[in-house]
Design a protein around this nucleic acid. Sequence first.
RNA 1: GCCGCUGUGGCGAAAUCGGCAGACGCAGUAGACUCAAAAUCUACCGAUGGCAACAUCGUACCGGUUCAAGUCCGGUCAGCGGCACCA
Length: 800
Amino acid sequence: MEKYDFSAVEQKWQKYWEEHGTFTAVNGSEKPKFYALVEFPYPSGAGMHVGHIKAYSGLEVVARKRRLEGYNVLFPIGFDAYGLPTENTAIKTGVHPRTVTDNNIKKFTSQLKKVGFSFDWSRVVDTTEEDYYRWTQWIFLKMFEKGLVFRDKTLVNYCPSCKVVLSNEDSQGGKCDICHSDIVQREKEVWYLRITEYADKLLEGLEKVDYLPNIKLMQQNWIGRSTGAFVDFEIKETKQKLKIYTTRPDTLYGVTFMVIAPEHKIIDENEAVISNMDAIKAYREECSKKTELERTQLNKEKTGVKIEGLTAVNPLNGKEIPIYIADYVMTGYGTGAIMAVPAHDQRDWEFAKKFGIDIIEVIKGGDITKEAYTGDGEMVNSGVLNGMTNKKDSIAKILSFLEEKGIGEKGVQYKMKDWAFNRQRYWGEPIPIVHCPHCGMVPVPYDELPLKLPPVENFEPGTDGQSPLAKIDSFVNCKCPKCGGDAKRETDTMPQWAGSSWYFLRYTDPHNTNAIASPEALKYWLPVDWYNGGMEHVTRHMIYSRFWHKFLYDIGEVPVDEPYAKRTAQGLILGPDGEKMSKSRGNVVDPNDVVDAYGADVLRIYVLFMGDYSQSTPWSDSSVKGCKRFLDRIWALSENLLDGDEYRPEMVSSMHKTVKKVTEDIEGMGFNTAVAAMMTLLNVFAEKGVNKAEFGTFLTLLYPFAPHISEELYFNTFGKVLSEQSWAAFDPALCVDSTVEIAVQINGKVRARINIPTDADQAEALKIAHENEDVIRAVEGKNIVKEIYVKGRIVNIVCK
RNA sequence: GCCGCUGUGGCGAAAUCGGCAGACGCAGUAGACUCAAAAUCUACCGAUGGCAACAUCGUACCGGUUCAAGUCCGGUCAGCGGCACCA
């Protein structure tokens, strides 16, 4: 046999699979279904990254195995193609984003095919195609119809460089996600989706899905549900109620001041009563100039201004307490006002120290002269609560007390905010709303969808943070669908998260022209059985898409309430230097180079063998060569196959053990140890030879990892196509040898190794151990205190 | 600051329920083949001491539980990720 020509072999089988529709999923098949989903890529100009290869290789292996196990597998791919980088390229090069996107998709497609992923290429979706975004707009209008879309004038995160408004998620740390410039605060009327209405459903849904524990936790923290109380404090001068939110109503007797956010409306309402309005206005001005970064920076000195002329009254004891404005209280959370308990909240403590406000202890146990005490302890100075020691009981008691008196009630708050759903950019789905001077906001009728993105020449955003669409009169000027009068179109587009919030639904029926997908297709394929992707998408993308899905469930469009039955995440591939791969560091590995030099199978094996799939691992060129060597040895071995259509007796347990190991490791994402087990078996073959039956099983195990060489060798050996065969079976009873080598410890230290029958009982194992010369020597002249035998594992003799 | 994950040879890493630490691979050393090199094959490959058999130490650090700890418990440190003035 000639030397292994990986390039020819890989092309040959890729062509075979394509021509035979090997990976085409069948809607409504009699077979059990399996829906494996990977996060579709953003088709950037840089082309594929080795990270993509690792991200897809995990479920690629599972999908290939499932098909051999008799499943009807849906393993789709598509492109999440709206977004700023494409638009920025278009602005820079003058090439239309449509063309840029098409070229990038072409590039990605050819690269993905070269790696031999078993995607169903007949179901590719592209979020920027009219047939796709028509339904993105449709879902948006359904939400509009159900009152989940609203507009609000608020301070927004504005990127002066990109000239866009960003969501909190896209501007974390006060930096723009795209260009990393500093974000400034700016007032603007923007679109929101009322995701907070689904906060509890999103939280409750986590209880019945199979996500990795840390993924669940991240989502829970993101939603950030807290329980507490709303309490009304009367303002002495105006008899107004100032409502606050607290998670510690039990500390109500320790309140010595109140703080409201700089933007709180009670200030504007009482301008006449407040005597130091100038100072307050100055402070407000100062705050609005601060970037998000400055405002949230830790260890920062507390700032604030006392409101002269307004005094709050503690509803429990009638004590008069001062009110301050300070930017450590946010408008967006709770009521934008807090009761400050400096003895038991560190932030309040710092503020009180700086402004010389009283600190009253209500829970014993700490030293409140040094810092706030947040632990448990006996209640003091607290009226009805005095003497209580259990926090939960104190909170329950004060809550019922507050409710009885009508001054407060139980409350729930979420850290998650409503979803700012707009961009002032060209390359996104147009928001299908018309502004009519008579009718207000009017949705574009469903039968006029898609509202097409108009072709333009100039993609530069407007100078005032307006979308480029605002400059196109033919787009903006329209008739109101309701009254027929002159109206103007909304010019904002949707954020990039829109298209990816429902793409997994479209895969089930990608060419449907009447609905997002047919009810039959959705019923057959949903939920996604296994979704794998990056940790970076666990909060934003996953929460957004679960929200959309739950909404669609509520309006009867999808048959299940959770889209993803199982979710896992892969770790990063770091550069050879152990740092995150980046162009600026110059440590980026191009998957194409690996495919060209060693073949797709080597690349696939390596990204799975390099380390724990869920962990970050640095790239190593020489380890790639090790994987190449592994495949070359298999190829060489195939030239010396022994005859035989069943395992040789001396190979039976090795074969069954390896099948068991690989089968189970794939399910548990132990891809690295699965490959290691195959390497071990290959080493046994090298020593003891290999017959056709054994080799056939070996190739079956290898197939999901290195499908090209497996197909080729299997066909050469058996004249059959491996992707049309069945997965290898194992018999647990045959995985055990008749004898096993175990260690004998004397006082916990290994002193000998003995061979015993696998099913030996304690008496037999100890008898064999005591016959061993090393053991005899070690226990000689000593008293045996205790003897332990763990079946098939160890003997430990304790002696003095 | 809070939450989570991780810490094991020169390197990437393995190690079911607490039961032989370092599987598998890389790199390295020696040998075979070769005029030579590459490739391939064989052997060795945690540290210290010893000619050796062997002994002692060894899973970030300190302590504990146990016949037995990488694994469990308490504390500390470091790296990575998430959240972050969330009341």
